[in-house]
Amino acid sequence: MDLHIVKKVLFTLCLIPLFTSAQYTDVINSNRPGRAVSAYAVGKNVVQAEVGLVYEQQDDASINSDSNIFGADISLRYGLLFETLEINYEGTFINQNITFTDLGTDETRTDFTRNRLGLKYLIFDPFKNPENNKPNLYSWRANNVFQWKNLIPAVSLYGGATFNLGENPFYVGDPTISYRGAIATQSRLSPRFVLISNIAYDRIGTDFPELSYAVSVTHAFRDPKWSVFIENQGIKSDRYSDILLRTGVAYLISPNFQADFHLGSNFKNSPSRIFAVLGFSQRLDFHKDKLVPIEDQKTGVNGKIRKKDVKKKRKKKKKKDKDDLDF
Rank of each mutant, 00 (worst) to 15 (best):
L18M: 14
T113H: 00
Q58D: 04
A22Y: 05
A142Y: 07
Y251D: 00
S65L: 01
T101M: 15
V249I: 03
T92Q: 06
I177H: 07
S281A: 05
N97T: 12
G205V: 00
I243V: 05
G79I: 03
F193V: 05
G173V: 13
F19D: 15
D26I: 00
C14F: 02
G43N: 06
G300W: 02
P130H: 11
E86S: 07
T299Q: 15
T299P: 08
F127K: 10
V51M: 14
E131R: 14
L151P: 07
V194R: 09
N164Q: 07
G234N: 06
F193K: 01
G52E: 07
L3I: 09
L189I: 04
K313P: 04
V292F: 11
C14G: 14
D285F: 10
A36P: 09
F163Y: 11
V217L: 02
N133Q: 13
A49R: 06
F19G: 09
A142R: 03
D321F: 06
K236T: 04
S187H: 03
L252T: 11
G248D: 11
L151R: 11
W140H: 13
Y213D: 10
V228R: 03
S21Y: 11
G160W: 00
S270N: 12
L85Q: 07
G91N: 09
F193H: 14
N133L: 04
R35Q: 02
Q258D: 10
G34N: 06
N115C: 11
T25I: 10
Y55I: 02
E90S: 10
T99H: 14
Y240Q: 05
A41N: 02
G264M: 00
G79C: 05
P130E: 03
D285Y: 01
R246C: 05
I16V: 09
T110M: 01
I235F: 05
G166F: 10
G52K: 02
G248A: 03
V155S: 10
Q233W: 00
K304L: 13
K288D: 12
R188C: 06
F93L: 04
V172D: 04
G159P: 12
